[in-house]
Design a protein around this nucleic acid. Structure first.
Lengths: 338, 338
DNA sequence: CTTGATTTCCGAAACGTTTCGGGTTTAAAA
DNA sequence: TTTTAAACCCGAAACGTTTCGGAAATCAAG
């Protein structure tokens, strides 16, 4: 492959001048620049990024760090989607991007800083590390900037993008109310999970907002499991015919409720509107397709990418970005006709 | 970050010796090696891959080239799975790996060779390019080795990994026969698709193998669509009660057949065994879960990765590898009890 | 015709490695 | 004691860039 030296020889100008011409400096004559450009094109010259990075002390590449890109993560298209987002945005911004997957065994051999130093990464976006992962802690301390997706942690060179958990849950409940539902039940997950409490709060707050009395017996516990939800929904729906809608803290629990309605011979959405959370893949295949609120991992990836290059390039941009979860309207919810 | 020079100074040995010690050359005294290792560890030294690549003229990184990692490719977990495979295998082999996504707009600015040269890629694995993609043609001609997944094309530094379409289809039919089925129908897709003819051939060959008469009326055409398959299956199943099994050239068509059985009040698999092709996501969620033959993209990724480093390292290994499609046994097939 | 500014160019050093060729010391053999 | 070989070490060049500092040539002003 042609190098600067080759172009230099072929054009008759020094390496310095060739370099400066190609990089658009203005202390080179128009004529000589044109000539150099011609020669460069003819020779198919393309700068060696490695050499450039070496001297400029920055590589124009961002790492995307995930845990264990092993077989299991396949079912999790969340990661893949954020990856797509990151990749797209970075390529727009003319950054390269390398995929880094860690495993505990690797972490023994190499620290996070070493990993960054080796490739002279300008920054890294991190996704899916456990909160106590040593790499995560190191990353936050490190001088090389990073942005975390879905891990709201503050740090020096650190930013994060996450979703509006509370607000989106509220929106789901508001949607039901908007459609005229007054007796709305809530299927909660295990109460000691963070998201459970958030969704529970959302439920209560929106009821309050609309001056609908909160009723303790309208809160069920499905423990994030399909079967459990079905079992708890079954008697509930029998005893509370006035309930026309139910907000479930997860799609799997919504599926359980759906089963319960089938066994009771109830029609969804005519007899009962169901709204889920997560937008799992199955939710669009089930019958009727589930209205649910889903995250937007692709969007989060894009935002993360754009944030990391902002930080890298020291433009002051917010170090905290929310990507709104999105209410996905399908067919398990309808107007209250009673 | 600590460099060789730092370690050199801190340990009192020359840069050369430090380098050789760290790289395990045997012309350095045990004592001094130990000392150097100690110092290196203490300083947190980690070699700069860029500098190393520059001088060694090889980067130890493999590119994974896909078209347009844009939003649409998300639904296609095929790509993601092969990516996982490639990544896993490469990390086992101590290679780095960068994701390259092309778009027609990018291709105008940069040729394939330039893309490789810039990063000094040792090799690239290519997935999902159209057969007439300019990059593909260039890749085959190029001096930098590449392996193609699912694109059986010969070239100089080129290899490919693909799946045994014919053999796996045969296996599916054999499976039915093994379970005692004698009257086996075949739901074909549109006959001018390549895979259709392959699966049709497989069907006929296996029947012949087992001396079962081929019957023209046992071949249906579902055009790769669910509804069409249902409509064609409905009268067929009525008129041919002797048929106990049906091999479908795709899962979606199998789904159509499934629907037909429901409408006819037939039980799957007791009254009719159904076997599909593709292992689409829905196939495991439907009731009963569909027995089907699926590709193994993860495995293909691994094989591709391992092949590319073989080629790069000039070990002579086969430049053609088949990853067997796999019969995925679920619940839509059972023994013939008639 | 000087002087000073501007334009245009270039040499050389630097980035962090690897590696070639050779040099010094030590030990074994003659 | 001298020669030879082995063991251990190092200087310097190279990889392909960028960039600092300055040099030559041109031009405008005095």
């Amino acid at each position: 492959m042609a190098t600067l030296k080759d172009v230099s020889k072929a054009s008759g100008f020094s390496i310095t001048t060739v370099s400066r011409a190609l990089n658009g400096y203005d202390d080179v004559n128009k004529e000589t620049r044109d000539k150099i450009l011609d020669v460069a094109k003819e020779l198919g010259y393309s700068p060696n990024i490695l050499a450039r990075s070496l001297v400029k002390k920055q590589s124009n590449t961002i790492g995307f760090l995930v845990t264990d890109l092993k077989r299991e993560s396949i079912k999790d298209n969340f990661m893949f989607e954020t990856l797509c987002g990151v990749s797209d945005e970075l390529s727009n911004l003319n950054y390269e991007f390398v995929l880094l997957s860690t495993s505990t065994s690797k972490q023994k051999n190499k620290t996070y800083s070493q990993m960054c130093a080796e490739r002279q990464l300008d920054g890294v976006v991190i996704q899916g590390l456990k909160r106590d992962d040593p790499y995560l802690l190191e990353a936050i301390e490190s001088t090389v900037p990073c942005v975390l997706v879905d891990i709201p942690v503050e740090g020096v060179n650190t930013g994060y993008v996450t979703s509006n958990q509370l607000e989106s849950a509220k929106q789901a409940v508001r949607y039901l109310i908007r459609l005229g539902h007054q007796h709305i039940a809530f299927m909660n997950g295990s109460p000691n999970a963070y998201v459970s409490t958030v969704r529970y709060d959302a439920y209560r707050q929106v009821l309050h907002e609309h001056e609908i009395d909160f009723r303790d017996e309208y809160v069920l516990n499905g423990d994030f499991e399909e079967l459990a939800s079905k079992n708890v929904a079954l008697p509930f729906l029998l005893n509370h015919p006035e309930v026309t809608a139910i907000f479930c803290a997860s799609d799997v629990m919504a599926l359980g409720v759906l089963q319960a309605t089938r066994e009771l011979g109830l029609n969804v959405p005519d007899d009962l509107s169901i709204i889920g959370f997560d937008n799992i893949l199955l939710s669009q295949y089930v019958s009727p397709p589930l209205t649910t609120v889903g995250q937007q991992p692709y969007e989060m990836g894009r935002k993360a990418a754009s944030m990391i290059v902002n930080i890298v390039e020291e433009q002051d941009a917010p170090h905290e970005v929310f990507v709104n979860n999105q209410l996905i309207l399908r067919e398990s919810v309808t107007k209250n006709r009673r």
